[in-house]
Amino acid sequence: MHRHSLTWERQETDKARQRDYLTFALVRSGVCVTLQDANFDYHYIANLPTDWMSPGSDDPPTDLSIFGQELGKKLTEVKKAIFETGQKREFEWVDERGRTYHFLVELVFDRENGRQIFTTVNDLTDERRREKTLRTLLKEVSHRSKNLMAIIQSVASQTARYAPNLERFVESFHGRLQSLALAQDSIMETDWQGASLKDLLERQLNYFPLQVKKLVQFEGEDVLISPNATVHIGLALHELLSNAVNYGDFVRQNAKIKVCAKLQQVQSTTPTLTLTWVEPQTRTEKPSEQHKRFGSTILERVVPNAVSGKADYAFSEDCIRYSISFPSNA
């Protein structure tokens, strides 16, 4: 048992005015407080949440009449136990509407009335909802981080496998990491919803010189794709751009590359998204196997498998054409 006092007060402070200000502060705080004597008779109730029944003027309030049968019975049992042990008790209660309340029940001492029961009730609903949302987000971040790390590990090992020397490995791996980072930026800015194709393409183009960006043209439907598709389609676009810059002649010819997106309903209930890359070329020779290697692996195997789609990578005398079709929600 203990007495409560202010942290500091002037000796000449008017007690009635002090009580008025403290009462005002209590009302503004939204915290519910109740005081009962040793017979469980209520002396006052402040800030009672609307979920419970406010006491009428005729009958004296009781735990059962205010809080209902289940919670009222629990509170009465807790208060009896406190009188026996002298130890404060606290618990949380979730009502039928899903609101969460924290109860703190303890003994206080009054010179005139002796031992009394002081109860404070805090509405923790918003706090618990924020905690739940945060836990969900942390799990999602953990899941996506593991997926991203697996992608990075795969890219690193495959890049090392096909790189002829350390310098080439560093250059290629840095570009692919940058592609993943740019895709993640798109995902973050949409609150993990994914990214639009046009925005994804523009972000990937930021890695390359301005003259390259001016020659790449987006056409068709600017579809919002999932986070998984954003990462992998972004990686495919990076590979196509890298190959075009390193081995193509579209810049020298001032010829435009067209990236087309088309959404169509096929047999399944989920629409199919087809993304097509058409890169003009005047050279007659095909890229060597050394040029294709891992870039081709990404475009023809890694990305299609990741988005449950199919891809076609073809070379002709006048253009390089890459097409990938996948479920729009992949």
Rank of each mutant, 00 (worst) to 15 (best):
H4I: 09
E12V: 10
K15C: 04
R19H: 14
G30N: 00
T34F: 04
L35Y: 01
Y44I: 04
I45D: 07
L48M: 07
L48D: 03
P49N: 05
T50D: 02
T50R: 11
D58L: 13
D59I: 11
L64R: 05
S65T: 15
I66E: 05
F67Q: 10
G72A: 07
K73M: 15
L75H: 09
K79D: 08
K88Y: 13
K88F: 14
E90N: 09
F109L: 03
D110E: 09
D110M: 01
N113Y: 01
G114Y: 04
R115Y: 03
V121I: 15
L124W: 05
E127H: 15
L134K: 11
R135G: 11
T136C: 12
L137I: 01
S142Q: 15
S142C: 04
Q153M: 08
S154M: 14
V155L: 09
A156Y: 11
Q158R: 07
A163W: 02
P164G: 03
R168Y: 10
F173H: 02
R176G: 08
L180C: 14
L182P: 00
L182S: 00
S186V: 06
M188E: 12
E189K: 11
A195F: 13
R203W: 14
N206Y: 01
F208R: 00
F208S: 05
P209C: 11
L210S: 03
K213S: 09
V223H: 07
V223E: 08
V223R: 13
L224Q: 13
N228C: 12
I233K: 06
G234V: 09
L237E: 05
L237P: 13
E239Y: 06
S242G: 03
N243L: 09
A244K: 09
Y247S: 02
Y247K: 04
F250A: 03
N254F: 03
K256D: 00
V259N: 04
C260D: 13
A261P: 09
Q267M: 10
Q267D: 06
T270R: 15
P271K: 09
P271D: 03
T272E: 10
L275Q: 02
E279V: 00
P280W: 05
T282I: 08
T282S: 14
S296K: 12
T297Q: 11
R301Y: 10
R301F: 01
V302M: 10
P304H: 08
A306S: 10
S308E: 15
S308K: 13
I320T: 14
S323H: 07
F326S: 07
S328E: 10
N329Y: 09
